[in-house]
Design a binder for these strands. Structure first.
Length: 213
DNA sequence: ATATCGATGTTCT
DNA sequence: GAACATCGATATG
């Protein structure tokens, strides 16, 4: 028999916990992006935790700005940022209102609507690459700053929600250093992924770039 | 498979 | 100016 997909979004209490608890608990959950052409479903396979006030790697570390304001608000909302001049990345805000911690969604498996992502993800050579990496994930789901602040606990007609799905057993969860984070913040093993999943992005240590001119 | 490099624009020093 | 929670194209093993 075919299991019916969950219809109830994760409650706000799910996100109102320490970010290091929430991050591994998100693995295996399904993110639903509603588009005019139909839903896109993504099973999360890789995430990273950013622990605001204590974390030099976090966008919230130096305090609230117009860009990161959503991180300082209530849990269960989306923080979207624009980076490297051309990409977006997507986070879920965790902890109580004011805590400014969040989980970066780094990779996942598209389980429905792969065809709807193809126009934006022409470079993907196979389905496993559609959302392999944080900017690829956001591109596949058509996420930009217009969705900053979206409440994923509200359910339809919200453009984004996280459905309950099957959580990943602890013995299938791996963790290690965060990708692309330099300095003190790079030492924390706050990247979490599902063992042996082919949609997890390759680890790349932070590399300072040579200046031109 | 890994390594290097250019693209772009916002944020922060 | 410099850095940036990155990616895609290209070169090479």
């Amino acid at each position: 028999m075919i299991a019916a997909p969950d219809r109830t979004p994760l409650p706000r209490e799910f996100f109102d916990r320490p970010v290091l608890e929430v991050a591994p608990d998100l693995l295996g959950r399904t993110l639903v992006r509603s588009t005019p052409d139909g839903p896109i479903r993504l099973r999360l396979t890789e995430v990273e935790a950013y622990d605001g006030p204590n974390d030099p790697g976090s966008h919230a570390y130096r305090g609230r700005t117009a860009r990161n304001a959503v991180m300082f608000g209530p849990p269960g909302h989306v923080y979207v940022y624009f980076t490297y001049g051309m990409w977006h990345c997507m986070n879920l805000v965790c902890g109580p209102d004011g805590m400014a911690s969040a989980v970066l969604l780094r990779a996942g498996e598209i389980t429905e609507g792969a065809g709807l992502t193809r126009t934006r993800r022409r470079a993907a050579r196979n389905d496993k690459e559609l959302a392999k990496g944080p900017a690829r994930l956001a591109t596949a789901l058509d996420i930009d700053r217009a969705l900053d602040g979206t409440d994923v606990c509200a359910g339809p007609p919200s453009p984004l929600s996280i459905l309950t799905g099957t959580p990943t057993p602890d013995d299938q969860v791996r963790n290690g250093p965060r990708t692309g984070v330099s300095g003190e913040g790079g030492g924390h093993p706050w990247r979490f992924w599902i063992a042996n999943d082919p949609t997890v992005s390759p680890y790349r240590a932070h590399k300072p770039r040579r200046r031109s001119t």
